[in-house]
């Protein structure tokens, strides 16, 4: 159908003014749902009519309003203002609510992320410490391996004499070994098996030179081989338990091990 001709037929104006019969009205309502331009024409005429009526208003005398409101007095709801305030669509109110929710959400996320950050930071510090601990342990191990390698080299050197010192009578379970470089005369000691020295006590190595004991050094807390004093000449090596720091002469009844050199 020709929509434009329909719009210009006057049926819209007739409908809006309440002059259309029920058949015309039903048809128009149907068509206005299908054709936006008809709806637009209806709206435009309604608005123009309203503006014209308002422009030609004849304000009633005050007593009409007074009478009207007096007759409706009991019908007004006192609390509607509050109820309506909550229900009325207000863009700014929705925006304010949305902003508040966003702010709270953002704050919660901040707390969450800060907690996460703190946890990660702590874990990272722990990892750093663990890493440096591992590194230094690794270095210690490497040093020990190098030392042991050096010791093995030294022990297997044909110029190094091995003096085995088994336990003396009453100390049969004890054992120590002296590695004596016959060229440099350096002395190294391996304490294979010796009881715990105990507090205030320290083992001391002696070299017997021409029947006389010579101090070859106290045994400290060395891993593996302990480098002792340089001994140019010796017929016997022995270990006694002395007071910490060693003694000038050996306490013979405290002898643990002894072994003949050469």
């Amino acid at each position: 159908m020709d929509i434009q001709a329909y719009i210009e037929s006057g049926v819209i104006e007739s409908y809006v003014l309440g002059m259309a019969d029920s058949q015309e009205a039903a048809e128009l309502e149907q068509l206005s749902r299908q054709h936006p331009e008809i709806r637009k024409a209806i709206d435009a005429f309604e608005l123009a009519l309203e503006k014209t009526a308002l422009a030609n208003a004849m304000p009633p005398p005050a007593h009409v309003k007074e009478q009207l409101f007096a007759s409706l007095d009991g019908d007004f709801r006192q609390d509607t203002k509050m109820a309506v305030g909550a229900k009325t669509f207000s863009f700014t109110r929705y925006m304010a609510a949305a902003s508040l929710i966003l702010l709270l959400g953002s704050a919660a996320l901040n707390v969450y992320f800060y907690t996460q950050f703190r946890a990660s930071s702590t874990a990272y510090q722990a990892l750093l410490i663990e890493k440096s601990t591992l590194l230094s342990e690794n270095q210690n191990t490497q040093t020990r391996i190098l030392d042991m390698y050096g010791s093995m080299q030294m022990m297997s050197d044909p110029t190094v004499a091995k003096v085995s010192m088994p336990g003396v009578k009453g100390k049969e379970n004890s054992l120590a070994t002296v590695f004596w470089d016959t060229k440099s005369k350096d002395v190294y000691l391996l304490t294979n098996k010796l009881p715990e020295a105990g507090p205030g006590k320290q083992y001391q190595l002696w070299a017997i030179v021409d029947g006389k004991p010579v101090d070859a050094g106290v045994i400290g807390a060395c891993a593996g081989l302990c480098k002792m004093k340089n001994i140019p000449k010796a017929s016997l090596f022995a270990i006694t338990l002395e007071k910490t720091g060693g003694s000038p002469t050996p306490t013979l009844d405290q002898m643990y091990v002894a072994g003949k050199a050469g």
Binding site: N56, A57, V64, K65
Partner: peptide, 16 residues
Amino acid sequence: RNMSAYTYLYENYAGA
């Protein structure tokens, strides 16, 4: 049944 809305309606449209 809001009174201020009804008052507004009257003030604006009673004359027309």
